[in-house]
Nucleic acid binder design. Structure first.
Lengths: 212, 212, 212, 212
DNA sequence: TATGAATGAGAGTTCATTCAT
DNA sequence: CATGAATGAACTCTCATTCAT
């Protein structure tokens, strides 16, 4: 039972670092310290191995997110917990966002990712829709909010390599991650405030007025 | 000179559709209608061909963004134009975001992407910093704002495949793109309002008070 | 003891259907419902398994042919019985002729087939030689007669696939097999008549004269 | 243009000696003195290479047989020429009968062989039918005669390995081939005499009577 | 007897690249 | 500029076989 997991660990790493195509079964075998043929004994094909890695991720992610959503409290609090849970998951599974980013853009594996992402997206959009019925239609349409916040969360991780050179420190260090979380909370608050106030233009007007 | 461009067009398409690794020189040659060896005559290697494609994109993108930024008006207006220009560019160059998404996650081509993205990120962050000096430090740190808005913009395009199944219509149709632009304007207004008010917690408090 | 026989049955079928090389131990194990490693427990190797299958066939075939030959009566009658017995055996063991045909053409298993076929051929040739001493030398040399009649018998079975498309009915149905047997009797009669008359040219001349 | 033919020659030899499955592309490349990848440059796959070899054979064989059939003279003479031409072809293309024998028994390549053999069989049967209308029905049905004579011809070649040990000399030497040809002529004469006399039982009766 | 796991060897195939013309 | 031919390297995958249990 040990070899199978070693293969999964190695595949996770190499798929994340190099992408599905560039990662070779030979190297996966080397890293996991098993015979090349054993990969095909435990997994029918390289594709099947990829699916196993991905399915494992989404299974764990769904668990984590469900738990966050099921927590008691107001929608705003639960959404905050959801965001935190997502960020924590990404920071603890650094290959995951790389894999998703790569393979979700196009190509033969996009469907497998879609199959996992769509329910998540739908759940998120439905949640927003239910909690903030006023978002119906227009610029605050639930799926727009959903995509935007998803983008805000994951982009920080997928572009952490670019950021590193930009800000001169490891963007995934504990300190920086805490800073990012604060930013996300601020963004979430901003958006929820706005949608709670219904018409966003109106909300903005109010904000401006209150400044005077 | 015609062959060279045909190769670039074909490479652009196939790199976008399949990714660098999965796209083969044979298919690029087939699609562009030239001999396989001719690719290596015009471009030293497959890597060099990729760079040519990418450099072409960023050259055009920089042109477009510079023009938007150089327009007269208040920072808010210029930023709005910047966003619009970016969205227009992505909607007119659909392979571009796929390519960037894939190759920026990791691997041997990430540096080449970073080399282009970093100046852009830095420019954006500096711009925000200059226009809104209060963002210094904390949750509204310029680079956080920069990454977040970048994510909001590009995620819609890179996940358009997932969205298609979710919302049941082509997310890249003219109508849906217009809707997305409205959403982006709303988001931008939201954020700029907040940073203009300095301390975000304060800003939120003001908003809440104004509701009563 | 049951597993061993199940393996033999499956191997017989797959060797017949696909040939020795294309048949895999994995599939043999699957078809026989046993573990792959068990094949190597009961049979030292895939080659040994093939030999076991083949030896079983020739053991049964020799039994059948010996019984036919040992029957009382004139050589012509005994030869007829021999032919019938052979045809019956082939029609009841359809994989057999496929296996022999494939593996007797060449390659590493031809010797194993030769080892069984040679005694049979020799026996057949000696029988003809003894019964019809005039066949010595020339066109009616015993081994020529032997090979020819062997070819007449087995070719119908080995090419039954081709024939099916040709005559539009199953060449191995009861009815067609009966028809084939009649043909074989006719051919046998023809040949034996001729060799009994010694010089074949003479025999033919006689036939022609009798027509007038 | 030379490499392609060298590959074909090597493939012919190895397919004949070892069979399709046992022959490897590596060895074919070695024997033909070309790079392994070149085989896939000239032929799409190992299967396609096999087809090229086979198609070449049947193309040449059809040419040879057509010429023999088109010669002037009575049916008996033309049939004799046909048999001679077939035997000559087999003796000059020793791998051919091995390949046909192996791959026509069963498996994925049987259809490709059938596609070539069926027209030949049909042509032969039609020829017999036309020349000897009395063969209609019963033991002398044209396709029975066709299969039998086909078997008589090819079996000598496909079982030449077995025969060698039996008769103690090379069955494919010039001398032995001449002997075989005489035998085939004798057999052909025998059969044609019989079918010319209509009912075979009658014919045999006549022969017997004439002996007294 | 029986089996899940493991392995070395090698299969066919594809790749980016080079070269002679 | 352009191309058909050629190549070394590496790919995924399957094979018969072995071994510990």
């Amino acid at each position: 039972m040990k070899a199978r997991e070693q293969i999964l660990v190695a595949a996770d790493r190499l798929f994340g670092e190099q992408g599905f195509d560039a990662a070779t079964t030979r190297e996966i075998a080397e890293v996991s310290g098993v015979n090349k043929a054993l990969i095909h004994y435990h997994f029918k094909s390289k594709d099947a191995l990829f699916e196993a890695v991905l399915d494992g991720y989404y299974q764990r992610l769904n668990l984590v997110l469900s738990k966050a959503l099921a927590s008691p409290g107001a929608p705003r609090q639960r959404l905050t917990k959801l965001v935190d849970a997502y960020v924590d998951f990404l920071s603890q599974n650094r290959n995951f966002s790389k894999i998703v980013q790569r393979e979700s853009s196009n190509g033969p594996r996009v469907d497998r990712i879609s199959g996992h992402l769509e329910p998540m997206f739908k759940m998120g959009a439905d949640l927003i829709q239910a909690a903030y019925p006023k978002t119906k239609g227009g610029a605050t349409e639930a799926h727009h909010l959903m995509v935007s916040f998803y983008g805000i969360i994951v982009t920080y991780f997928t572009y952490s390599g670019v950021l590193e050179n930009l800000v001169g420190k490891d963007p995934l260090s504990k300190k920086e991650l805490a800073s990012r979380k604060k930013h996300l909370h601020w963004m979430l608050g901003l958006i929820l405030d706005a949608v709670e106030n219904g018409d966003p233009a109106l909300a903005r007007a109010r904000v401006k007025k209150s400044k005077t």
